[in-house]
Amino acid sequence: MSFVKMTASTAAILAATAGAAAAQGRDNVQVAGSSTVLPYASIVAEAFGENFDFPTPVVESGGSSAGLARFCEGVGENTIDIANASRAIREGEIEACAANGVNEIIEVRIGYDGIVFASDIDGETFAFTPADWYQALAAELPVDGEMVANPNTSWAEVNADLPDQEILAFIPGTKHGTREVFEEKVLLAGCEETGAMQAMMDAGMDEDAAEEACIDTRTDGVSVDIDGDYTETLARIEANPNGIGVFGLSFYENNTDSLQVATMSGVEPSTETIASGDYPVSRPLYFYIKKAHLGVIPGLQEFAEFFVADEIAGPDGPLSAYGLVADPELAATQEAVANGTTMDAM
């Protein structure tokens, strides 16, 4: 039957092209990692494709940890060139990288991102402090030297100035880099502010254990971990108008028609208040370049330099327009990228 012959020969051609591909090499930059950095990376990738003769880089998401894990899989064309992260790389990840032959890593800080607390637009207005969040979400609170399960059910119980609304928080899950910032800048800060940390240490806990207890969130359904993207958090708030969600500033700015933002310690989040340091909850965004791929993958060096160029990552660039807070030390970053300064050398 000619049909059988035809399909057989097409299959053979397919197999041949597959073999050729493995040998031929990759001509596009591959990026993966944090879903917070993804919008910025996609904006840069698009502009890069428009202005250079290189193909548009491929940007995948999946979270900071997943991206760095793939980054550390090894050196070679079937591994990614750049990992996006909404937190700095950890010591353990650097070791994992080194074990797989990824010794030289260039760390690039692209700017800062604000973390905002937003609720349904038709609901109550909130003005939080880190202490409010700690007392609302901590698993156990110290009372007279003893740890008791968190009894608070309404924001008014936490702080009389807050509306009498049930506590329901949608916070980023542990696979998100945002979680770490939330724990450190909100829960831990609140824990110290209220004196709870001191109380725990006075009760005989060592410092590490007290910090652990500070960032331990309650599991009675009041604090809900969101492992998906911010769109999932938004959907949860739309389904449950009493909920308060943790978002990135740029996501909030794209959805001001359905969300209202809460102030933190009296400051409303915006690119200006974050840049000035008045708004307390922000974190740097990074990407990591595999130095061994520079000069091997066409366009990688150019893409990295383009990413941190003034016209892209500067205060008037498209990233800033989308919600990134420009890094005041951008010039130093540009130099480090141009020279290929690795992490050890810094």
């Binding site: 993966a32 993804l38 990376a41 996609s42 990738a45 698009e46 494709g49 193909p55 548009t56 491929v58 940007v59 995948e60 998401s61």
Partner: peptide, 9 residues
Amino acid sequence: GMVGYIATN
């Protein structure tokens, strides 16, 4: 790896 900002060219 087929989900992301990929289908650009």
